[in-house]
Design a protein around this nucleic acid. Structure first.
Length: 186
DNA sequence: ACGGAGATCTTCT
DNA sequence: GAAGATCTCCGTT
């Protein structure tokens, strides 16, 4: 599935000639018409409608009055409902000075070790909602990076969900990360 | 080191 | 009117 396969790939935000990038360390899947944790649960709204569309585009949304979350629209090939993969952590690669400036006063480990943090370090905002992440001429896109071996991949339940998400969805092992990497969120 | 509260927008009840 | 796919700050151990 996408949440597994995107681990190790490199997210690039290109502004003019300046590349800011990071390797994907941690992801979380949200999919299915029965998944109450998904914003696409229930009905289509202006915010979530992009998740009902084409896979491979970005879904950026605002939450808690302060933060943006960055997702990849993804779905099972034979199914038509909404789905997305949340990027929860990156490892900074290029444009380190820029990321340091955006995360001023924090240790490098905290620049991208969380879904809202990486959005800040990468300079992602609502203007990048709906971008095709598979096209290198997009300002935001993925490069192949180095493949991650199965034995390096750990998985477990999602985090940050309220208790009103019914089982078994609340405890499904839909969070993936690269074992031992220091940028995994806590 | 750990825990709790605040920030403050969008969506749904 | 309330809760949410979170982070940071400030209090106390």
């Amino acid at each position: 599935m996408v949440a597994r396969d995107v681990l190790g790939r490199v997210l690039v935000h290109q502004i003019d000639d300046q590349r800011v990038s990071g390797r994907v360390i941690e992801t979380e899947a949200y999919m299915g018409s029965d998944d109450r944790a998904l914003h696409g649960y229930g009905r289509i709204t202006p915010r979530n409608k992009i998740m009902f569309g084409t896979a491979g585009v970005s879904y950026v949304y605002f939450i808690y009055g302060n933060y943006w979350m960055f997702n990849i629209v993804a779905k099972l090939s034979h199914v038509d409902y909404a789905g997305a993969v949340l990027i929860r952590a990156l490892e900074p690669l290029e444009g380190l000075e820029i990321q340091a400036a955006r995360r001023e006063g924090r240790p490098q480990r905290d620049w991208t070790s969380g879904p809202a943090r990486l959005v800040l370090a990468m300079g992602i905002d609502s203007a990048l909602n709906g971008v095709d992440l598979t096209q290198p001429d997009s300002s935001l896109y993925f490069e192949t990076g180095n493949p991650v071996l199965d034995k390096e991949v750990h998985f477990g339940p999602r985090v940050g969900l309220g208790s009103n998400v019914p089982e078994p969805w609340n405890s499904k092992p839909w969070r993936f990360w690269i074992a031992g990497n220091r940028y995994v969120s806590r």
